[in-house]
């Protein structure tokens, strides 16, 4: 971030490398604990997707199928995507905006913390919250929704959604570097809820109007949801490689925007 020398020295000295590794692990641990203890974060990011799933996947549409899969299976993939996206956007978008705007990031940057440890910790915390959500959905689906899923498919689903935290963490950073500490939560909600809906995460795309189905193909959550669906045998739209490419491109774009925000900050009073 401010310098790459931490990374360079770590190549040079093994002691430094081990030390940095320990910092990364500790940073991630405390980042996770920090969010776990903020009820607004841990409850809303975990509870919302789970609650939606119970309502729409378990209570209302028990017998339905979409393509080749049952509604209760389909919605594990789509609410899993929704959950991972929420956990990543809130931890990074709101987290960075507030820590940057209210001076905490500066305290970290003045310390000898390896600069990337900060971002790594946020990514790991988002991935852990994402995994918790996906596992809860799987457990609920299997226990109460008659979901049959092979262990390997379940693991693949989990892996895809964990990787899916990356583009949304990058998106969170882009938001966090431009939004103020007070406006960030509202901004994240304004972006996150509509694109979730329009990507077919709440109501499967097949039930949405044609123009929305077309529009969905430019939305990142749509692409992640398609990848997730295919792991549970759902009928995905489009090629897997296209979805991955889209998400990779989106990640780079967001990191570029975040970088602009970072440099914009450098000339200012905080950053």
């Amino acid at each position: 971030m401010a310098t790459t020398s931490a990374a360079l020295t770590s190549v040079v000295s093994p002691r430094r490398f081990n030390h940095d590794l320990a910092v990364y692990v500790k940073e991630a641990k405390y980042e996770f604990l920090k969010y776990l203890r903020i009820p607004v974060y841990s409850f809303s990011t975990v509870l919302f997707p789970v609650m939606f799933y119970v309502l729409f996947g378990l209570l209302m549409n028990r017998q339905g199928t979409i393509g080749q899969v049952s509604v209760s299976t389909y919605l594990i993939a789509s609410y899993g995507t929704f959950g991972v996206m929420g956990a990543s956007l809130f931890a990074n978008g709101v987290g960075v905006a507030s820590e940057r705007g209210l001076g905490w990031m500066q305290v970290k940057r003045a310390s000898p913390m390896p600069p990337f440890a900060y971002f790594f910790a946020k990514l790991v915390a988002s991935m852990i919250f994402g995994s918790i959500i996906v596992l809860l959905l799987l457990i609920l689906g299997i226990a109460f929704g008659g979901v049959h899923i092979a262990l390997l498919s379940a693991l693949k689903l989990l892996a895809v959604l964990i990787m899916g935290a990356i583009p949304f963490c990058a998106m969170g950073l882009a938001i966090g570097y431009f939004a103020g500490p007070n406006s960030a939560p509202a901004l994240v909600n304004i972006i996150y809820l509509p694109i979730s809906f329009a990507s077919g995460l709440w109501i499967p795309l097949a039930f949405l109007p044609k123009f929305l189905q077309k529009f969905a193909t430019v939305l990142p959550p749509y692409h992640l949801a398609q990848l997730a669906l295919q792991t549970v045998g759902g009928f995905g739209h489009g090629l897997n490689s296209t979805h991955w490419e889209f998400l990779a491109g989106f990640t780079l774009l967001c990191l570029g925007i975040a970088r602009l925000g970072f440099h914009r900050d450098e000339g200012k009073t905080y950053g």
Binding site: Y30, E99, W104
Partner: peptide, 30 residues
């Protein structure tokens, strides 16, 4: 800006908000 020199400095800055859910010893540990 080099980590080597930051190892030898400590800073107490004006900060409006510090993560509130971590304990005192956890902040220090990190």
């Amino acid at each position: 800006v080099e980590a080597e020199f930051r190892m030898r400095t400590g800073a107490m800055l004006q900060v409006a908000k510090v993560p509130e859910t971590l304990r005192v010893r956890e902040h220090i540990d990190l």
